[in-house]
Design a protein around this nucleic acid. Structure first.
Lengths: 134, 134
DNA sequence: CCTTGACCCTCCAGTTACTGGAACCATTAT
DNA sequence: ATAATGGTTCCAGTAACTGGAGGGTCAAGG
């Protein structure tokens, strides 16, 4: 398969696939014309990568997951550890975003949003935020 | 004030402050020795920036907010619009992360995480995820 | 045989918001 | 005089691509 077909079937842009080759996540062969030639296993790996990336795994996580995927003798615990680490990061990001949302929702709610210039959002950004939501 | 004191009082690293000068968010004067000399208003702006950044506003958002902050005649609606746009982005990011968390929690829960090699996490990454949580 | 168009190639630069480090100058304390 | 501290600039790197320039390959049509 050439890159266009792999892109189509994996759902990844061709540019991304070339990039993944650059960083050695996939290693397609080359034809006499210099074109990349992808095997089915390459397609599987790329699809795997697309799924893992869409779940927010980092490229390095993906690299590790791919290695584990290839290793028939690894323990499921190794995979679970990566997934749990990632889950923990997601949860801490969620907490952070929820705190931002709470503060911003409060500020937006307080601000009249009209033609007048008084604006609690700017006041609070300038002065610090200590009050709690109403 | 020199940069060290401003860094201390604003809570921002000196490097970050130099960067903010680079991108023209602050424009401190210079002393005869080449050192930056910050006025109180610079400190206020930097504190403002630190707060806004910690709430996840982008640098460009901050640039707009600072301009509005400086503009005594702007309408609070202009500020509110930026905050609401940011809030919307936060909420969509939250939804995305919550979806990831749901899928990952499910997968982690399914995986025994022991010495055996069978691992639903890898299977699902390889095969696609269509089942719902149990 | 030539051209057109779709595809492929490589390489460079830009994105976001900093951060680290090298090499060097100024100030202050001993 | 010297050493420590803190200031300066500039370059490079981070994550994970994305866009674009400039050019090669291939199949079909005139």
């Amino acid at each position: 398969m050439k890159i266009g077909e792999v892109a189509e079937r994996s759902g990844l842009p061709a540019k991304t696939i070339r990039y993944y080759e650059d960083i050695a996540l996939v290693t397609p062969k080359r034809g006499g014309n210099g074109y990349r030639r992808f095997a089915e296993t390459d397609l599987h790996k790329l699809t795997f990568l697309g799924r893992a990336r869409s779940l927010g795994f980092s490229i390095e996580d993906c690299r590790n997951l791919l290695a584990l995927y290839d290793d028939r003798s690894r323990a499921s615990a190794d995979v679970k550890a990566i997934a749990q680490g990632h889950l923990a990061r997601i949860e801490s990001k969620l907490a952070e975003l929820e705190a931002m949302r709470a503060t911003l929702t409060h500020l937006v709610h307080e601000c009249a949003g009209d033609q007048r210039s008084f604006c609690p959002i700017l006041s609070d950004l300038a002065a610090g935020i200590e009050q709690d939501a109403d």
